[in-house]
């Protein structure tokens, strides 16, 4: 297989990792909102962890992005 088109395919595949992060973020904020609805007084404490968690999940997606860039460099 020629390397350039293959690298484009690879980059696209690497970007699919974003889907997982999207699912994760959705779960997390959904659960967080559920928790806040049940226990509004805990919002202050919990939202801190929500944002930290969001940053972690987002970083997972960005690993895919970095992979895509690496493939781009090799192409």
């Amino acid at each position: 297989m020629e390397s350039l088109p293959a690298s484009f395919i690879g980059m696209g595949l690497a970007a699919t990792g974003l889907g997982g992060a999207g699912i994760g973020l959705g779960y997390m904020f959904g659960k967080a909102i559920e928790a806040f609805a049940r226990q509004p007084s805990a919002e202050g404490q919990l939202s801190k962890y929500v944002w930290i968690g969001a940053a972690f999940v987002e970083a997972i997606a960005l690993y895919g992005l970095v992979l895509a860039f690496i493939i781009m460099g090799k192409g």
């Binding site: 970083a59 960005l62 690993y63 970095v66």
Partner: peptide, 13 residues
């Protein structure tokens, strides 16, 4: 690796 890539990737993206 994860520590450095997390920060770098976030900023880059």
């Amino acid at each position: 690796v994860s520590l450095s890539v997390r920060l770098f990737a976030n900023m880059t993206a």
